[in-house]
Design a binder for these strands. Sequence first.
DNA 1: ATTATTTGTGCAAACGTTTGCACAGGAAAG
DNA 2: CTTTCCTGTGCAAACGTTTGCACAAATAAT
Lengths: 346, 346
Amino acid sequence: MPTPKLKDIADALGLSYSTVSRALKGNFRISEETRHKVNEYAAKIKYIPNIAAQSLRNNRTRSIGILVPNISNNFFSEVLNGIESAGYDKNYQVIITQSQESGEKESKNIDTLMSRAVDGLLVSLSSTTLNAEKLKAIHESGTPVVFFDRVCSLFDTYKVVSDNEGGSYKVVKHLIRNGYTRIAHITSSPEKSITSERLSGYQKGLEESNIPFDASLVKYCVHGGMLPHEVEKSIDELLELDPWPGAIITASDRITIVTMASLYKRKIAIPEQIAVAGFSNFSVPEIFAPPLTTVKQPAFEMGKIAADLLIKLIESKKPVANYEKIVLPTELTVRASTALKMAPVG
Amino acid sequence: MPTPKLKDIADALGLSYSTVSRALKGNFRISEETRHKVNEYAAKIKYIPNIAAQSLRNNRTRSIGILVPNISNNFFSEVLNGIESAGYDKNYQVIITQSQESGEKESKNIDTLMSRAVDGLLVSLSSTTLNAEKLKAIHESGTPVVFFDRVCSLFDTYKVVSDNEGGSYKVVKHLIRNGYTRIAHITSSPEKSITSERLSGYQKGLEESNIPFDASLVKYCVHGGMLPHEVEKSIDELLELDPWPGAIITASDRITIVTMASLYKRKIAIPEQIAVAGFSNFSVPEIFAPPLTTVKQPAFEMGKIAADLLIKLIESKKPVANYEKIVLPTELTVRASTALKMAPVG
DNA sequence: ATTATTTGTGCAAACGTTTGCACAGGAAAG
DNA sequence: CTTTCCTGTGCAAACGTTTGCACAAATAAT
C-alpha cells in the first residue's frame, strides 16, 4: 500500500486539504473537535508528511549542515551529539561533513551543503582555512552561519566557544600551586583562535606568579597532533632543555596520547619527573597511567547551544542585530598526573 | 537575486522546460547543439537544480541513512569516510545516526531516517539489538538495507564484513609461533556476529597447534569496552589465573586502551610478562608503549563497498535475487607488543 | 430586523521538476 | 508525389504541501 497522504485524511474525514493541513500544524482557527479528529486519524494511518513537498512549498529543508575538522575526535563527536540532540528536539536533520583540516575540502563541503539547500550552517573551521569569505557571503545572503570552538572574526554572527583562556589559566595556577614552575605547553597551530586564547591564559597564569614567559617552552603542532611525528619532535626539543620542564600542558587528546606514550617510551616517570595535564574530552581520563589531570570543555553543551542559536536564526523572521559570543566555562579536574611536586629524589 | 530556475534557462534560450530538463540530464533525443547551449548557459548562471522539487517529482531523495553504534570510534569513523566517499562520487547525501549501542535509540533512528525518506539504509547493528524485524520490513517494502561489520542473519541482503575469523586466526598463529601458548581473548558481547567469528578463528588457531581451548581465557565485555570497568574486571579475572596468560588479544580499540593502561598501572611489562595484540583501527598504533601488534580491518574500503552496493540496489529497477556476503581481508601487523617470548626471567 | 464581527472551512494557485504524449519538419521508402 | 519513419521539441499534468483569499454560518452589536 502506498504511503498515506494529506488527501487520504481529507477524504476519510470529509474535510478539505487546507483544514487537515491546518489542523496538523496546530491552531489556526480550526475547531478543537476537528483538530482532534484529524490528529487521531493521522496517527491511526501513520501519516508522515512528505518532506520533499514541504521543502518545495516552504522553501526550507529543515536540515542544517555541519562543517567540522574531523569526527573521530572525542571533542567533536561530543559536540555532534549535542547538535544532534538540539536538532532532534526541533525536528531538524543534521548533515555532517569533515574538512580533515583541509581548507580546500572545507570549501567543497560548503558547496555540497549549499546545493543540498541546508537552512543553516554550523561551522568549526579547519586549521588551514585561509579565509572565510565564502561563509560570509552565505551568511549575508540569508543562510545563517554559526561558529563553534574554532571561530573567525571576519564577520559578525553567533559564536560559541569554551573558556580556553580561563582553562589554561586554571591549569597553570594549579601546577604552580603544586610546585611546578617550568611549565611547557604543546599546542596546535598558532593561527587558530583556541591556540592564542589558551596561550594568553597560560601567560597570565605565569605572570601572576612572577614567572617569566619562556618561548622555548611553547611548542606548536601545525597539524594539531594528527601527525605523531610533530608531537615527538616537540617533546625531543623540550627534553633537550636543561633543566627539563617540570610539567607539560597538552592542547588536545591526540597531543596528549602521543605525549604520554612518548614519555613512557623514554621511561620518564609521570608526574615524578614530568607532570602532564591536558585539554581533553576523553570519556575516561582514568585509563591513563597515571590518571590524567584534564581541562574538560563542555562539548555536548557547546553543540547544543550552537545548534539552538542557529535554529533560532533560521526561524526568526527579522535579521538579528546583536550577535553574541557565548563563552562556556571549562572544568579542571585534578588527578594523579599532576600530583604535588616532591623534592627531587637523590 | 533569486536562485536561477529551469524556467530562466528556458526563457533565455527560447526553449521549453522539457527540452532544458532533458538537455541537462544528458542524451534523450536532444541535439548536440541544444545540449551544449543549455549546459553552457546553466553553468554561466550557476544553475543548481532544486533538490526538493526533484525529490518530490522523482520520489527519491538522493540521501542514504547510516545507522552506526558510535562515530567516535576509529573504526566507524573510517568506515564513514568510505561511505562518504562513495556517496560523494554518486551524488548521494549521507545522514548519520548513532545508536550508542542502544537498541531502543537505534529503533528511533530508523524512524527518523524513514520519515526523512532516505533512499536506503546502511546499518551496523548496536550490540543490544534484539531483533531486526523493522529493518526487514523496510527492506522488503522497497527501501534497500545493506549491513556492514555487525550484520544479522534475519533476512537476505548484501553484507560487508571483514574477515574476523581469519584475523584472529592469524594473530593466534603468530603468537603461538612466537612462543605464547596461554592466549587470552577479551572481546565484545557474545551475540555480535563479529564476536563469534573471531572466537572461531581463535579456536581454529589453537586447535591446529593442539592447544586445548580454555573457556576461562575468554572474557566478554557486554558494552564493547564502552565501560572501562568491564574491561578492568576481565583483566582482574585473567590475573587471578595461575599461571597468567602469556598473551591477550583484544577485540577493539577501547578494549585495547583500557587493557594497556591497566597493565601499565599494575606494572606488568608488555610483552615480557604479558603480550598484547589487538583488533584495532588506530591511525597510529605506534603511540603505544610498546608499539602494538594489530589486526587492522579495511574500514574505509568496507564503507565504500557497502555504500556502492546500497546505491546499486537503490538504482536497480528489478529486485536483486542473489545477495552476496562480501568478506574483506584483515591485515596483521607485527610490532613489539608481541615480541618473541623469552624464557622466563629468574 | 438589519448590519457588523467572529469563527470555521474550502478553493485553487503555487513551489520547481520530470515525463508521457503529441506534433512539426525532414528524410527515406514506396 | 504520397506515405512511413525518424528526430527534435513543446504541452501540460503530476508529485504533496501550504496559504491568501473568499465565503458561509453563527454570534454580537445596532
